[in-house]
Simulated scan of single mutants.
Amino acid sequence: MNKPKYPKINYIGNKEKIASWICDQLPADVQTVADVFSGGCSFSYEAKKRGLSVIANDILQINHQLALALIENNDVILNDDDVDLIFSGSLKNGFMTEHYSDVFFFEQECQELDLYRQNIEKLDNPYKKALAFALIRRAMIRKMPYSRFTIPWEKVKQLRDEEYSYAKYGRRRAYHNQSFEFHFRENLRAYNQAVFNNGKQHQALNQDVFEVLNNIQADAVYLDPPYTGTMNNYFGFYGLLDSYISSSIAKPFDNHFMDKKQAIDLFKKLVEYLKPFRYWLFSYNNVSQPNREELAQMLAENGRKVQILETPHIYKVTGKENKQNHKEILFLVENI
């Protein structure tokens, strides 16, 4: 078997470049780890590669599909017949055409997405469906300037104009105008090869963080919450993909960690819900709120041992003037 390799996900805030460093900090007696803000699953994937049993949870449905495809799934891949089925048939006027034509994609592109959504439902295995959603996600992201669904339509059209892009940025970005099918097929092999079995069972969950912490057992919990005070609107970035999966307008979730006024209360609540677990690994950022000292104080209450590590890490959507000032902080907590 080829060595498992995390595929291209394009997830804002992804920890792909430092996932190995984070996993290095896991205590030796950890056998099961819960990644409760799993996002693009880079940490979960690295933990799975290291032979651990992984629980990957995220409140966004599209992130849940990524976790089903790459973490819970041990051996199911998409074959040529599956892919041909997804891209068969005539264009369809459906949910995407009605709600998002000339909003994020052109009308014909939305008709294509409606057809593919209908065909994905015909796949005979939930992990095949999850892989298909993960690959359609990749295709939609590749066609979207800045890889997020918060860009006004006029700007989208402007940036997809290859001559404009070349004149302004020196790059035509032709991949924005390649078809969904092109991007899906181009990435198919990498996603199929990313599926592997480490001999353990895994879970992919789609719950609010407090709900999942109340209902799981694990030796360690890894937390990578949205960083309050930074560009962290994950529902805005990726909520469209949830709408696509459900064929209904997705609603923002409650515990989003975006509101500075609520952040401290949410972190205090997190600490309460983490008390049943022995080890906590908490990713954070040196410009987030509550600040480093406030969070360290919360984590150290009741005699808990807290170690703080740092590594340089660029947060992708931060403005140019701030990128080099950001450091990734990892709080290691032993709950004794």
Rank of each mutant, 00 (worst) to 15 (best):
P226M: 08
P4M: 00
K157Q: 14
L332V: 14
V33H: 04
N255H: 13
Y191E: 00
D259M: 08
D24M: 05
F43W: 06
L123V: 08
L78E: 03
D29Q: 00
G319M: 07
Y279Q: 01
I216Q: 05
M96N: 14
M298F: 13
G170H: 07
R138I: 09
L70P: 02
N125Y: 06
I141V: 15
Y244M: 15
A134G: 05
P252I: 11
A167D: 13
V83A: 01
D58A: 05
K122P: 05
E107Q: 13
K122Y: 03
G236L: 06
Y175C: 07
P225Q: 06
K17T: 14
Q262I: 03
I336H: 10
N214I: 11
E293Q: 13
K251R: 12
R292P: 00
P152K: 04
L241F: 03
N214L: 08
A300E: 11
K268V: 06
Q307E: 14
K327T: 12
A263T: 12
Q307Y: 06
R173N: 15
L135E: 01
Y222N: 09
N197I: 03
K316M: 12
S283V: 11
E186F: 12
L135I: 14
W21Y: 11
Y222V: 08
P7M: 04
V156D: 02
R185L: 12
K143S: 06
T97F: 11
I329H: 01
H176Y: 15
A134V: 10
V33M: 08
N119Q: 11
Q289H: 12
V83Q: 01
E211S: 14
Y175G: 01
D219F: 13
F104S: 05
K5S: 13
F196Y: 08
E211I: 14
